[in-house]
């Protein structure tokens, strides 16, 4: 595998917890701006993989290279969104979003607030700047979380089942929002989800994680925007689900 080139290169990553081998010599190359969905059975190591990408954990062996640079620890170019919004309850909505600008030390507090308010507008929460997080609905909280993640225009956005706790309608709205922001900012995205149709409707590439490695790497060339009831989408969905169910 080539060492250089822009984009993200996962080289021979293994991760073990004690005697449990979660990831085993995983190899992956991703172009800058690609949207990757990751599916797989519960416990197959999806979150572990994202945590390695995020620098929250270290691989047992192997390395990750982002734009020719070996990644080590936390990186301001990488943002993560979790299933829980992880907003700070004691900060207002706009202050929470401003946390996303923390790495940019040259900004004045007024600049931060201004940019955060603009970002809130983009995720459809104009006018809610000064509210406490606890008054927001689950979907609105995830919008704030998304605004916080994207306000610094990171190169890589990692999404660990961010819509898992939301109802079906809110999820559809969030798909649209994530898609629009991805088009605009052109970050590379990794979306872990247990919803195969969600994975298909958003991604350029769908990865199936199994036995510590990529068991399926499926390019999705369907035209965007994709409809849930599109025949091709549902065919692909069926294929993937059949493939997941084959083992075990």
């Amino acid at each position: 595998m080539e060492q250089g080139g822009s984009g993200l290169h996962v080289q021979n990553i293994s991760k073990r917890f004690g005697t449990v081998q979660v990831l085993e010599e995983l190899e992956l190359s991703v172009n800058q701006g690609e949207f990757i969905s990751i599916v797989g059975r519960s416990g197959c190591g999806k979150s572990t993989f994202l945590r390695l990408l995020a620098g929250l954990d270290e691989p047992t062996s192997g390395e990750i290279v982002l734009n020719n640079k070996k990644m080590q620890g936390i990186n301001p170019e990488i943002r993560v969104m979790f299933q829980e919004s992880r907003l700070l309850p004691w900060l207002t909505v706009v202050e929470n979003v401003a946390i996303g600008l923390n790495s940019n030390r040259s900004l004045t507090p007024a600049d931060r607030t201004k940019q955060a308010a603009e970002m809130l507008d983009k995720v459809g929460l104009k006018g809610r700047e000064n509210e406490w997080p606890h008054v927001l609905s689950g979907g609105q909280k995830q919008r704030v979380s998304l605004a916080r993640a994207l306000i610094s225009r990171p190169q890589l956005l990692l999404l660990d089942e961010p819509l898992g706790a939301l109802d079906a309608f809110t999820r559809l709205e969030m798909h649209q929002l994530i898609y629009n922001l991805w088009e605009e900012q052109q970050f590379t995205a990794f979306l872990v989800t247990h919803d195969v149709s969600e994975a298909i409707s958003l991604a350029d590439r769908l990865l199936l994680l199994e036995n510590g490695n990529v068991a399926l790497d499926q390019e999705i060339t369907l035209k965007r925007p994709r409809k849930r009831d599109d025949r091709l989408v549902s065919e692909l969905e069926k294929q993937v689900i059949d493939r997941v169910m084959k083992v075990h």
Partner: peptide, 19 residues
């Protein structure tokens, strides 16, 4: 989870404590 979030966003030890 909040502390981990703070780390992702580059808060140093003092900021983690204070915020």
């Amino acid at each position: 989870g909040l502390i981990e979030m703070g780390k992702v966003y580059g808060l140093n030890s003092w900021e983690l404590f204070k915020k």
